[in-house]
Computed example of a mutant assay.
Amino acid sequence: MEIKHRMIVLDAADIDAVSTFWAGFLGGTVEKWGDRWHSIWVDGEWALGVQSAPNHVRPDWPDGAPQQIHFDFYFEGLEAWDAAHERVTGLGARLLKATDDRTAPRGIQVYADPAGHPFCLCWVPAAD
């Protein structure tokens, strides 16, 4: 058996908001396949799907409704991480958990996209 495509699909009540958010953050474009499905394309490749789920229950990490999926994005150095933070918050992400120590060589903050899907922005030391 040969798998032709591998796709992460997010459910969302407002697929326009979620598609626009992820395309904006990933530097991609949205291809709308009707009003129930959108595809996010990055560098000519199919990167992510967003499916209409009118009854979607927003995850309430960490104590409420369980998260259904999450992404971790790693950046080398705080400067790149700061730029990612500005980008996602400018696109509508909510900060769920701030880091305890921005001076640490490695760290993480947890955010949510417009539909409440949690994701992490992480920093690691810059490569020499």
Score class of each variant (00 low, 15 high):
94 R>D: 11
35 D>C: 01
83 A>K: 10
38 H>W: 01
27 G>C: 04
77 G>K: 00
85 H>P: 01
24 G>P: 08
8 I>V: 15
44 G>C: 02
92 G>S: 05
41 W>Q: 12
19 S>G: 13
103 T>A: 14
98 A>M: 10
60 D>N: 13
12 A>M: 08
56 H>Q: 09
64 G>D: 09
104 A>E: 01
41 W>V: 15
109 Q>V: 02
98 A>V: 09
35 D>W: 01
107 G>F: 02
113 D>L: 11
26 L>A: 14
58 R>P: 09
25 F>L: 12
46 W>S: 13
24 G>E: 04
17 A>S: 12
28 G>H: 06
107 G>I: 10
84 A>W: 06
46 W>A: 09
69 I>G: 13
17 A>K: 10
91 L>G: 00
111 Y>F: 10
93 A>S: 03
65 A>F: 06
102 R>G: 04
108 I>L: 04
56 H>G: 03
104 A>C: 00
111 Y>S: 05
44 G>T: 07
57 V>G: 06
35 D>T: 05
42 V>S: 09
90 G>L: 06
38 H>M: 13
36 R>C: 04
36 R>F: 02
63 D>R: 05
36 R>W: 01
61 W>K: 12
32 K>S: 14
44 G>P: 02
71 F>I: 15
8 I>G: 10
64 G>H: 06
26 L>E: 15
26 L>Q: 13
21 F>K: 13
17 A>Y: 01
47 A>M: 15
86 E>R: 14
85 H>I: 02
11 D>W: 00
74 Y>R: 14
75 F>H: 12
62 P>M: 14
98 A>R: 08
23 A>H: 06
113 D>F: 04
77 G>M: 03
10 L>I: 09
73 F>D: 11
113 D>A: 06
72 D>P: 11
69 I>S: 12
24 G>T: 06
54 P>N: 00
68 Q>G: 15
41 W>P: 00
75 F>R: 14
12 A>T: 08
52 S>M: 07
10 L>H: 06
112 A>V: 06
69 I>T: 15
81 W>D: 02
61 W>F: 13
60 D>V: 12
86 E>D: 12
43 D>F: 01
68 Q>P: 07
20 T>G: 09
68 Q>H: 09
67 Q>T: 14
39 S>P: 03
65 A>V: 10
63 D>A: 05
67 Q>G: 13
78 L>T: 11
83 A>C: 00
21 F>I: 14
23 A>C: 10
105 P>C: 00
85 H>S: 04
68 Q>K: 14
56 H>A: 07
11 D>M: 00
